[in-house]
């Protein structure tokens, strides 16, 4: 492997950026759709989105040759540069997701903050009241007390409720935009034939959504102490969402490889990087097997009800291992793409 200009910081950024974008999309969808039922997912995703994208953007800035000059990105707009478009997208994303996250902060955290900072106590207490979610009882995956499910935060004033939902509404296209941008950043470079296909953007977007669903499976139980019915519902819906995204991802990888095999020499040679070259192991075992095929098979069996008879400890183990595998695969996908792309040149 020769020297690569873009290294691990860019890989981690692309991973975290996609993850944060996916969290926002899923959180917004959970907030807006079937109000109240998926409040755990909405909260976990809202809290994670700005943190993950913030961390990623920090790495992006730190990777610059002149990090202190990063503000140069924001005194201009270069419509032909995907990086310029992406930088502005990230600013918008950070603002929207931060507002959304504040309006989704758990009341218990806010009360603890109120105790810690008595001067701001009243504000934290007010926010804690606003953010008190509606109690939605869920049994067998069906919410009861149907009259409550139209309003997920009954203690928020109307304006705050509208602001929260507006942030979620903008968050979906913005999150999809950031997810696509992480791929376009690579795909827009004709000099690197491995990247230069229209499919890399979709691949990164669906991988972002799939890894976000996986991360939310892990994090939702930590920030939402619902009853067993509710956490079961959250896990089941994330699992179904992930099945869609993971298969979309697979359906893009397959034509990606076929296209490369049938294409001009540059594309063929660059695909040999993953088909039978330095990145084959990471790609086939890490990305395809560990990140897609094994978790997709387990999720398929579980979604079909095939895992019901398993002992509880094994189920809990699977609910931890499968998301972790998806996350590892998602990271390796970025790693393989960033490095294999830089190993190839236009012939």
């Amino acid at each position: 492997m020769e020297h690569h200009e873009w290294g691990w910081m860019i890989v981690v950024y692309l991973f975290l950026g996609g993850l944060g974008a996916g969290c926002m999309v899923l959180s917004s969808a959970a907030h807006l759709g079937r109000r109240g039922r998926y409040q755990g997912i909405a909260r976990a995703g809202a809290l994670l989105a700005p943190v993950l994208v913030g961390l990623g953007s920090g790495l992006l800035i730190f990777d610059l040759g002149s990090p202190l000059r990063f503000w140069r990105l924001f005194v201009t707009f270069q419509p032909a540069s995907p990086m310029s478009i992406g930088s502005w997208l990230l600013v918008g994303f950070s603002v929207i997701t931060s507002i959304f996250a504040v309006l989704q902060l758990p009341p218990s955290w806010l009360r603890r903050l109120a105790a810690r900072f008595p001067k701001l106590g009243a504000s934290f207490e007010t926010l804690a009241l606003w953010n008190k979610p509606a109690h939605v009882a869920v049994r067998e995956g069906i919410s009861i007390e149907r009259d409550q499910i139209d309003i997920n935060f009954p203690h928020s004033p109307g304006g705050v409720r509208r602001l929260r939902s507006a942030m979620a509404g903008i968050g979906i296209p913005l999150g999809i935009g950031v997810g696509i941008y992480t791929g376009v950043l690579l795909g827009a470079i004709p000099a690197r034939p491995f990247w230069n296909t229209p499919m890399v953007a979709q691949l990164f977007l669906f991988s972002a959504l799939s890894t976000a669903a996986a991360l939310l499976m892990l994090v939702t139980p930590l920030v939402w102490k619902g009853d067993a019915g509710q956490s079961g519902l959250a896990h089941r819906s994330l699992l179904r969402a992930d099945l869609i995204f993971i298969f979309l991802e697979l359906f893009i990888i397959i034509p990606y490889i076929i296209h490369g095999e049938l294409s001009v020499l540059s594309a063929k040679e660059s695909l040999n990087m993953i088909l039978g070259g330095p990145y084959s192991g990471s790609f086939w075992i890490g990305v395809v097997l560990v990140g897609i095929l094994i978790p997709a098979s387990i999720e398929l069996v579980e979604a079909a009800g095939g895992a019901r008879k398993l002992p509880a400890r094994l189920t809990r183990g699977l609910h931890f291992i499968v998301p972790v595998m998806i996350l590892v695969g998602g990271y390796l996908l970025r790693w393989v793409f960033v490095h294999a792309g830089q190993d190839t040149a236009f012939l």
Binding site: E5, L64, G65, S66
Partner: peptide, 27 residues
Amino acid sequence: KKCIGCRYCMLACPYDARFFDEAAGIV
């Protein structure tokens, strides 16, 4: 004065004509 050292241009150049001056932090 405007270069921030992101090196995107280096990846975009099919001729490998640019280099990153690590000490100066610019291309």
